[in-house]
Design a protein around this nucleic acid. Structure first.
Lengths: 198, 198
DNA sequence: CCTACCGATCGGTAGG
DNA sequence: CCTACCGATCGGTAGG
């Protein structure tokens, strides 16, 4: 019953510190020596637990984006009306950000430093995630719930912009509950500044 | 009438290539040797024209953010109704992005690599710019044009999210004119997906 | 703007 | 996981 998984545990510690440092200093601005110092190892000792620096980034980015995909899949598989599905997507999205602020910020900003092949995998996942929002907007227009006259592509890009910006200002321990924040964002998305609602 | 300003001209060439490289590889991911090769000099020769690497970033970021501030000042000094001022702010913002995509992307993503004192200057400018949007939203609520029930702070953060995301997808040579794109973004901001408008 | 170079730091490895 | 180290690359400089 003792720790037979010290190796895996060390790896998690390294990943945790890498997330912290990558989010603060960027991937290219963080050295393996920075990470080693943060976890209390000598630089060369890191390589007893990991293969290469980029492997850390790959794992962090993929874990992060998979969290969004998994949460989105749950929402998309429900048969709720488009506006309620949009609210659920935004709640799920903001919830994941709140649970893991630094990881999300690495996912959003550091994936560009991945090698070409690894970047392709990430971009494909991101496209799949974005298509969930496109689907909801298109469904809403088809159902007569959303404005048929709007530019659906630009509407989706606006929503993604709102959501991608959230990690820059959200404080998970702030006064308002996270779901409350998500719902106020959804209000803006649905009714805008004018605010006439059905 | 000949070029007496070769020095200043070389400096502009260096800045132009630095913008390109910083936007593609990031500030910390770009070496002075990368820049030297791009402008056709040997690495050490760059220092006949510039003082230090960070000086390049300082100048790029400040030029970029000043463009937004100057354009915003023009809009804010007009007495138009809040919704029209919002439309004008968004048009100005998208226009500047379209004119200088790579510079904008450096402004948005690389300012974090500035030293503490220089970063403070940039953050102050950014706060001033953001306050223009806050002012318009507050004016709109006070005038009864915008929904008094919304969370104004979150509304402003949503607008900034939309605008900060634009450099990631705008193609200045795309099918729709840039002002058209800006107006469709404004539509979303004002009336949302439901789209009831006054 | 080039030649020639500086000390520091980089990601990573061999051997134990 | 440490010792000891590798070649490559970093930002920047002296002197011309």
């Amino acid at each position: 019953m003792q720790r037979a998984d010290t190796g895996a545990r060390s790896r998690e510690v390294i990943l945790r510190e890498a997330v912290r440092l990558f989010s603060r200093k960027g991937y290219t601005g963080t050295s393996m020596r920075d990470i080693a110092e943060a976890v209390g190892l000598l630089p060369g000792s890191l390589y007893a637990h990991i293969d290469e620096k980029e492997g850390l980034l790959v794992e962090i980015v993929n874990r992060g984006i998979d969290a969004f995909l998994d949460a989105g899949d749950v929402v998309v598989s429900t048969p709720a009306p488009p506006d309620l599905r949009m609210r659920a997507l935004i709640r799920a999205h903001v919830g994941i950000i709140a649970e893991n602020l630094e990881q999300t910020s690495v996912v959003f900003h550091q994936w560009k430093h991945l090698s070409a092949e690894r970047r392709t995998v990430v971009v494909d996942k991101r496209d799949r995630y974005e298509s969930m929002f496109t689907r909801v907007v298109d469904d809403g227009i088809a159902a007569g719930v959303f404005n048929a006259g709007m530019n659906a592509r630009i509407a989706v890009l606006s929503i993604l912009g709102i959501l991608n910006w959230v990690p820059e200002w959200l404080s998970p321990n702030g006064p308002e509950p996270v779901d409350e924040v998500a719902d106020r964002l959804t209000d803006i998305v649905l009714v805008g500044l004018y605010g006439r609602r059905p």
